[in-house]
């Protein structure tokens, strides 16, 4: 079971969180004309990365905040966690 550092609550076990997918995906703006391809990429197409992956998790049984977790998908190593609106350098 992973040990995830919630930026609000501190180190917590994985069973308090739910996984929310690739955090690098940006939703197209509302009311914007976009191509089918662009929309398809947003809704369906994800890279299945091996290695460092920035992903969303929600601290569901905790503060209920959505957070960003930088995790290695192969080794499960977690390098860093961020608040949802935090800029990542």
């Amino acid at each position: 079971m992973l040990h995830i550092k919630c930026p609000y609550c501190g180190m917590r076990s994985q069973n308090e969180f739910s996984y929310g997918g690739d955090a690098s995906v940006k939703r197209p703006e509302l009311n914007k004309e976009i191509s089918d391809e662009e929309w398809d990429n947003f809704v369906y197409n994800r890279k299945s990365l091996r290695g460092k992956h920035l992903e969303l998790w929600q601290h569901l049984s905790g503060c209920r905040q959505w957070i960003k977790v930088e995790r290695d998908t192969a080794t499960h190593e977690i390098f860093n966690t961020y608040k949802a609106d935090e800029e990542i350098s």
């Binding site: 929310g20 939703r27 969303l56 929600q58 209920r64 905040q65 959505w66 949802a84 609106d85």
Partner: peptide, 13 residues
Amino acid sequence: LSHLEYYLQVVWP
């Protein structure tokens, strides 16, 4: 609830 929280926190803060 999670769905609403997602859009409020991540997409349209």
